[in-house]
Design a protein around this nucleic acid. Structure first.
Length: 413
DNA sequence: TGTCCACTGGAAGGGAGGGCTT
DNA sequence: AAGCCCTCCCTTCCAGTGGACA
């Protein structure tokens, strides 16, 4: 029998399997449901603050705080959608234009202004213009009409930590330069302390109103999951313990609703792949492991080459039995590795920053310790299992030769 | 008590690479 | 083509530091 005929009908048989999902997209982050359980009071508060926009008044600027997956973004988008719908139904109201920007992606003054201006039809190159020119183009384009522009700066803390508060400062003061339009700002942050880094003037004008989103508890997460699961899955495919388990696991991670939804979705996918007819606790546990390892693998795979070499050096040092690895040791091995790969060698200062980045990504854990007479350094520890990560690193063609890297004979420490 | 180590981490600035304007 | 601008990645410089040791 030839190969092809042994696989004949493979697609038919895959597709003929009864799927467990009715609509998987309902479990994705991007989906905005028609109801947001346990966020009624936040919706009301935000709507109350933004409502004056419809009457042609400038709403107060708002800062929204809350950990990941507490519904900040979804509530803000939900309220803005409502605002726009209200506007469509009732033409007596003053026009309102909400603009959503994620500052993790749009993270410089230039890009923020260029993005805003593009919303009003301005053609702005992604680089090349002086920033004040972009600012003026934006100002001119919004001021052509009587309207209220609500600028939503999601992850505003990332913008401020990277590019300072100049854009925010300019945006909070733009109203005094506008004749027709009005601007108000909604800043969303998951770092409560980020206003400490702001100029006091920006701080006070940005946080005219503050909203804090507390984490969901396990019971609330269950409600959210039940609501979505009803729409996402076929009836009767969920074991009764699945939702409480997803909720409990996510509640442990500061009540992250996104995590809870991911768990449920991936558990469904795992079960489907196994041809199971019912999704059980076992699938949730497997989903939990899969999500964690997929995330790490993806992060490591997309690391710049230099960081990959650095990480490889840390792994080898740990494999050699060092409980704690220090910057100096890592830098020494890193230099040797770069030499053997004919890569440029970065300075220790730069490497120190790369180590901090790896820490931020959760791949390693580093903290500064003083060893007294023997100086101050970072102690570095891997946060992930070295075996899998090593394979991911060796998968990079530029690093492949490191698999037979020889440690220097001399003990380093 | 002072010294001194092995760094840390802030600041400033270089330069390459993207682009625009004149 | 020359002169700018913005961003990213990096180097150089250097003050600062916690705690072991003399």
């Amino acid at each position: 029998m030839d190969l092809k005929s042994s696989f004949s009908g493979i697609f038919e048989s895959i597709l003929s399997k009864e799927p467990l999902f009715k609509d998987k997209d309902i479990l994705r982050h991007s989906y905005t449901p028609s109801e947001l359980p346990h966020r009624e009071s936040e919706i009301k508060q935000l709507a109350t603050i933004l409502a004056p926009a419809l009457k042609g008044e400038t709403p107060s600027n708002i800062l929204i705080y809350g950990k990941n997956g507490t519904g900040k973004t979804i509530v803000t988008k939900f309220v803005c959608d409502l605002l726009v719908e209200t506007l469509k139904k009732n033409t007596n109201f003053y026009p309102v234009t909400p603009i959503y920007l994620n500052c993790e992606v749009t993270d410089t003054q230039y890009r923020i202004l260029a993005n805003l201006a593009k919303h009003f039809g301005e053609k702005i190159p992604f680089t090349g213009w002086p920033t004040d020119k972009v600012y003026n183009a934006f100002k001119k384009s919004i001021d052509e009409e009587n309207r209220c522009v609500i600028i939503i700066l999601d992850e505003i803390d990332k913008l401020v930590s990277k590019s300072g508060d100049t854009v925010v400062y300019n945006l909070t003061r733009i109203n005094s330069e506008l004749k027709n339009a009005k601007v108000s700002i909604v800043g969303i942050s998951n770092d409560l302390r980020f206003t400490n880094y702001l100029d006091p003037r920006v701080q006070s004008s940005l946080s005219e109103e503050e909203l804090v989103f507390s984490p969901y508890n396990a019971r609330q997460l269950e409600d959210i999951l039940r609501q979505r699961a009803e729409m996402a899955f076929k009836p009767g495919v969920l074991d009764e313990f699945v939702i409480p388990l997803c909720a409990a696991l996510a509640a442990r991670e500061h009540g992250d609703a996104r995590k809870a939804l991911d768990l449920l979705r991936v558990a469904g996918e795992v079960a489907e792949r196994e041809n199971a007819e019912i999704i059980t606790e076992k699938h949730v546990r497997r989903a939990n492991e899969k999500i964690e390892s997929d995330n790490i693998v993806e992060v490591v795979r997309t690391l710049p080459t230099q960081s990959k070499v650095l990480l490889y050096a840390i792994i080898l040092l740990e494999e050699r039995g060092s409980e704690m690895v220090t910057t100096g040791e890592v830098y020494d091995i890193y230099k040797r590795m770069c030499k053997s790969l004919s890569l440029d060698i970065l300075t220790q200062r730069r490497v120190s920053d790369l180590i901090s980045e790896l820490d931020l990504l959760g791949i390693i854990n580093s903290h500064v310790v003083s060893k007294g007479r023997y100086g101050r350094t970072k102690e570095i520890k891997l946060e992930v299992s070295p075996v899998g990560i090593k394979l991911v690193l060796e998968d990079d063609t530029r690093l492949r030769n490191l698999s037979n890297f020889k440690f220097p004979q001399r003990r380093l420490f």
